[in-house]
């Protein structure tokens, strides 16, 4: 048995935190060596491979460099992944269930003729996985009924395995040397650029300078009750005081207060920070699906009947425009005291 892990990176040498969580899931719960596949093109690829080689648990890094892989487009990537799976015959093909993983993995599985298991939150054994269904209102344990050697194509929810990744990163085993890096066999890249494929035309990806929503330790989420995009600045200030990320409910995104990528919920991002603060969010099940695994949940809402208060560890029934400025002030005072002490 062995696992082939698809590595997500930004093309500039930085490996996605979600991939570290997936590596942690594999090294803890799947048998055999853990081989990582880094795909891309350009100067930064070697440094990406080097940082993957240092990830705890990774035993080997395969490097696939080809012009068709410069952008993470599903058609050439899935072709490559299916070729590697056919040649190397890993028992598991793994990726993080991010936008990229969700886009790529099922297509690869179809090319391999195998049914994938996506968004796994628990690995019970090499054939048995737990995944949320119905917006997290139930958890299904599913098991492959097909006999090996069919490759198990699995994507894992990063927040479910993030703690292991963080622990491994903070205390790497003493004397560990990086895994070897080796290019994939040239025939695997043969005519990859000729695959009928979408053409990448551009992106609008803003960097807020805040931690990434999916892996932030603190997440401050706002709902429609914020009333405007301008009022979200208040939440940004609170998030910055706490070193956290800003998220939003679907209602706030649909109202145009914040961009789509900040949406937390069943169809948006799933977050599980140490501290979640929901401001003016009523708590539709679709939103709760995206945050109820947070360690500590705070809800600020002027409606005592808001459903979010039933999952909150600390519920404050108060007008947000009164509560949030005061909370910012108190958090700032704490930080100043800590700074001067």
């Amino acid at each position: 048995a062995s696992t082939l892990l698809f590595v997500e990176h930004n093309g500039e040498g930085k490996v996605a935190p979600a991939t570290l969580a997936a590596a942690s899931a594999a090294s803890q719960f799947l048998p055999g060596p853990l081989e990582a596949l880094v795909c891309g093109f350009g100067e930064a690829l070697a440094s990406t491979a080097a940082s993957v080689a240092a990830v705890p648990g990774v035993t080997k890094v395969w490097l696939a460099s080809d012009p068709s892989l410069e952008r993470p487009v599903a058609e050439p990537l899935s072709k490559l992944l299916s070729r590697i799976a056919a040649k190397h015959q890993p028992s598991h093909l793994l990726a993080a269930s991010t936008a990229q993983g969700r886009n790529l993995l099922p297509r690869t599985a179809a090319l391999l003729g195998t049914q994938p298991v996506t968004d796994v939150v628990k690995i019970l054994d090499e054939n048995t996985f737990v995944r949320p269904i119905y917006a997290g209102n139930a958890f299904a344990t599913v098991q492959f009924s097909t006999p090996p050697p069919a490759v198990r194509v699995v994507s894992v929810r990063p927040t479910a395995f993030a703690a292991g990744a963080a622990a491994a990163a903070s205390s790497p085993p003493a004397g560990a040397s990086p895994a070897p890096v080796e290019p994939v066999a040239p025939e695997l890249l043969h005519e990859l650029g000729d695959v009928v494929s979408a053409r990448w035309e551009g992106q609008d990806v803003r960097s807020s300078g805040r931690p990434e929503l999916g892996s932030a330790k603190v997440v401050v989420c706002g709902g429609r009750a914020l009333k405007s995009a301008e009022n979200f600045a208040m939440l940004e200030e609170l998030a910055d005081q706490l070193g956290g990320a800003v998220g939003a409910s679907r209602a706030a995104v649909d109202a145009g207060f914040v961009p789509n990528d900040l949406q937390v919920g069943q169809t948006g991002k799933v977050v599980a920070p140490d501290l979640y603060i929901g401001v003016g969010i009523s708590g539709a099940i679709q939103h709760l699906a995206g945050m109820k695994d947070s360690r500590t949940i705070v809800a600020i809402n002027n409606d005592p009947e808001a459903p979010i208060l039933s999952v909150a560890d600390y519920g404050l029934v108060q007008d947000l425009f009164t509560a949030v400025p005061q909370l910012i002030k108190e958090v700032r005072e704490i930080k100043e005291q800590a700074g001067s002490a």
Partner: peptide, 14 residues
Amino acid sequence: VTREVDGGLEVLSL
């Protein structure tokens, strides 16, 4: 097609 990806939007021509 404009698609929703982590961090923002991406445009593909198919």
